[in-house]
Simulated scan of single mutants.
Amino acid sequence: MSRSMKQFHDAQWHIVQQAGGLLLNRSISKPQLHSLKSTRHLILAVSFWHSSFSKLINSQGYYLHSLYNWLKLTLIPSEVEKLSPSWFEELIEAYNRVLPYATTASKAIKSFVQVIHGISEQQAEEMKTKKEVEDGLRELDKKSEEIRNIDKKLYLSNSRVGILGLPGGGSWSDAQDPLAKKKKKLREHQRRVEEDTRAKVFNDLHAGLLRLFEAMTEFSDASAQALEKFCGSHDRPT
Rank of each mutant, 00 (worst) to 15 (best):
R191C: 07
K200C: 02
G118K: 01
K200R: 09
S2N: 09
A224Q: 03
V98K: 01
I147K: 01
A124N: 09
A102M: 04
W13T: 08
Q176Y: 00
Q7M: 08
Y62Q: 13
K6R: 14
K72Q: 09
S159K: 12
L73M: 12
A222C: 07
W87M: 08
Q176K: 10
R138I: 08
M216D: 02
D151P: 08
S27L: 07
A215V: 05
L64F: 15
N58T: 15
E90T: 05
D10C: 01
S220P: 02
R97E: 12
L186N: 11
S223E: 10
L33K: 02
K130V: 06
S66E: 11
D135A: 11
H34M: 06
N203A: 09
S47V: 01
G208D: 00
K183V: 06
E194P: 02
L154K: 10
I150T: 04
T197D: 03
Y68M: 15
S171H: 14
I163G: 03
I15H: 06
T217M: 02
S35H: 12
C231D: 14
P178S: 01
G21V: 05
A175G: 13
K6H: 12
E228W: 06
K37Q: 15
E228D: 13
V16W: 08
T238R: 12
M1N: 13
F230M: 06
G162L: 04
Q17F: 08
P167V: 05
K143P: 05
S78L: 12
I15A: 07
A222V: 03
L23P: 03
R148L: 06
L56M: 13
Q60S: 05
V133F: 09
Y101L: 05
L140N: 07
Q32K: 12
I119L: 03
K142H: 14
R26N: 14
I147V: 04
R26T: 15
R236K: 15
N25C: 15
S120E: 02
S52P: 02
Q123A: 01
Q190G: 04
T129I: 14
I147L: 05
F48Q: 13
V16C: 08
R211G: 03
E194F: 14
G61C: 03
T103Y: 03
I15Y: 07
V201G: 03
F88N: 08
E218I: 00
N158I: 01
W172H: 13
G162S: 04
Y63W: 12
G21I: 06
L56K: 07
E146K: 09
P31E: 07
L205T: 08
V46C: 02
S171F: 13
N203M: 10
L210T: 00
K181T: 14
K55H: 11
Q12V: 02
E194W: 14
K152V: 11
N203S: 13
L209A: 09
K128Y: 10
Q190M: 09
A215E: 03
N25T: 15
P31L: 06
K185Q: 10
T129P: 05
G20N: 03
